[in-house]
Amino acid sequence: MRKKYSKEKKHRDGEIPVGSFSDIAFLLIIYFLVATSLVKLKGITADLPTGEKATQQQSSKTPIVNLRGGQTFFNDKPVTTAELEARLQVLNLAEADGNAKVIMLESTRDTPYQSYYQAMAVISEQGGVIAIVDEGDK
């Protein structure tokens, strides 16, 4: 009985143990350091028309970029990436509005994603809107 009584007394004036709080906190920090990724991926933002816009008729004057294998054509003339950029710069796509911003992108079946990506990157960089040309659209 005596022992029990003395134990109870000890508890009464005891404080909340906070000594291990920092350990818990540091464990949480380690968890977040391991589990999270602060790496920002690099890439391009491409604006492709949605379903409603895709049904719109494009005029024959809409510029067209053709990808045939590894070769790039702008309005049926072969161009390098730098030349394509220069041609699009003349069109001042960033300032244009509506359909004037649209650049059609057509490609053959063997076109690798690398060529496609470069064309999309140039058009997006110049502020153009990419309209993918389907075989059924022609």
Partner: peptide
């Protein structure tokens, strides 16, 4: 793919 126009997203 590679491109000279890529930026941090």
């Amino acid at each position: 793919p590679l491109s000279e126009y890529v930026e941090k997203q």
